[in-house]
């Protein structure tokens, strides 16, 4: 018997394809999977939240809202409450009491807490030039309630968490799924903002009779934003300049009138 060593001309024990190409395909596959699951479930959540009564939402979040909402300025809050009531009267779809609280804060900002509480910073009232401008901001926050954005966000959060748990066996993989699904959730969030803007414009027109001052606030904050191209994919809100443009287009398309603005009430800070 002649014993020899044979070195095979060709190897068969491992694939010849580039690891990088394979890797890119895998990344694409996983991204498609995650985005697919997330987008489809996002739509489903968006559909089903409308079956949850507003009262249920209010009860659900009452405790949380109590705990979250900081001290508010009574005089200013009462002033804004009048504006909110005027807006709510124009929108029969709002079934729960909406309250507004004025808080301290460095930035001109307003936010809607789940369950029917709107927070407005004093800084925003300072910056605002007219009652119409403030009402537009309030109507926008009202839109978040009406369109059930809190529940939708919560539902998407739960689904995201579930996806992470199911797919999260591999620490490397989940560490990259989390930031990429954030991109999707931010795009949902930008869509929510745009929807709330549209709702706000309609409500303002119904409550006041015209939409004068609707874009004022966004124009003001647009000048404060850094305009980095491409950054809009990373942000939760659409750029304010885009929002102004979208509102302008809507005003023109629907033929809303823009009449003289109501002055800011004297009790509000200047």
């Amino acid at each position: 018997m002649k014993v020899v060593t044979k070195i095979p001309e060709e190897q068969h024990n491992y694939g010849k394809q580039s690891h990088l190409v394979e890797f890119l395909w895998l990344v694409l596959g996983v991204l498609a999977l995650v985005f697919g699951v997330y987008i489809v479930s996002g739509w489903l959540v968006g559909f089903f939240v409308h079956f949850i009564p507003q009262e249920t939402e209010r009860k659900l979040f009452a405790k949380l809202t109590q705990a979250l909402a900081p001290e508010s300025d009574r005089v200013l809050s009462a002033e804004l409450q009048g504006m909110i009531d005027r807006l709510v009267r124009a929108t029969p779809e709002i079934e729960i009491p909406i309250s507004v609280r004025v808080i301290e804060g460095d930035a001109p900002n307003a936010m809607a807490l789940p369950g029917g509480v709107i927070l407005v910073t004093k800084k925003l009232l300072q910056k605002a030039g007219s009652q119409n401008e403030i009402m537009m901001v309030l109507a926008h926050e009202l839109g978040h309630f009406r369109l059930r954005h809190h529940l939708r966000g919560l539902g998407r959060g739960v689904i995201l968490l579930g996806t992470m748990i199911v797919l999260g066996g591999e620490p490397e993989a989940s560490s990259f799924i989390s930031p990429s699904s954030q991109l999707v959730s931010r795009s949902f969030s930008r869509a929510d903002e745009a929807a709330a803007d549209e709702y706000a414009l309609e409500t303002l027109d119904r409550a006041v009779g015209h939409v004068g001052g609707a874009t004022d606030f966004f124009e003001k904050i647009a000048t404060m934003e850094l305009g980095l191209p491409g950054m809009s994919y990373l942000s939760t809100h659409p750029p304010s300049s885009d929002r102004v443009r979208a509102l302008r287009a809507m005003i023109a398309q629907r033929g809303y009138r823009e009449l003289a603005l109501d002055p800011k009430p004297r009790s509000l800070p200047n």
Partner: peptide
């Protein structure tokens, strides 16, 4: 490690 983790999905 990363590529193998992704591979484990499919």
């Amino acid at each position: 490690a990363f590529a193998a983790a992704l591979r484990s999905f499919f």
